[in-house]
Amino acid sequence: MTTRTIRYIKSAVFLLALAPFLVLGYRFQTGNLGTDPVQWITHFTGNWTVYLLLASLAITPVRRLSPALGWLVRLRRMLGLFAFFYATLHLLTYVFLFSGFDLTGALTSLRAHDLAALRQQWLAVWPTMVDDIKKRRFIQVGLASYVILLALAVTSSQWVMRAMGGKPWQRLHRLVYLAAVLGIVHYWWLVKKGVLSPLRDTLVLAVLLLARPAYRLLTRKRTVRARPARTAA
């Protein structure tokens, strides 16, 4: 795989990962966000956060299937950053649309440069959000997951990695597993009892997480088997 080919692949994956955002923008423009747009946007951005997080977690197990797939690792950071991007949209949706914030009113105040009114509108919903963080466990785990993704995003560059040193950086970035688990827990805790919609994502995450110890077990067996062969030679 030449660097040039990888660059093409990266551009293609970039566009693919951006596509949901473009779809969102297009549907917003055309007023095609379903009957309850706030709910639609919340679910859409939440789902794509999970999908991209799962995609970034799939890189390692898939890459291990064949040495020819080693280049996949070069897509991982981009997928992780896109997960963070959609998580940010999800959080903004919660803050400005879901919490009861009067967005239409706020835009009117903004256009009128009425900052006092804007401040009032913000103060009207801020306690709801504080209340959510204090009381609601699905909000707590969701926020915790976001904080992890934020930390990983700001330390994602080569430059930070070098400054931190490989080992500590890797240790920090292993938190992505926790972020994914918290994300899925967030999903289970927010749906009504009896609703099984998070099951599919949960199974995918379980497979991706179990692939790691399975791989370790498999490679250990292989090295054990390889040893007597060497002595025979």
Partner: peptide, 15 residues
């Protein structure tokens, strides 16, 4: 899991 103080009124407006 959420406050009941507000509601999203689904009417003819897009948003």
């Amino acid at each position: 899991r959420w406050s009941q103080a507000h509601e999203r009124r689904i009417d003819s407006s897009v948003f």
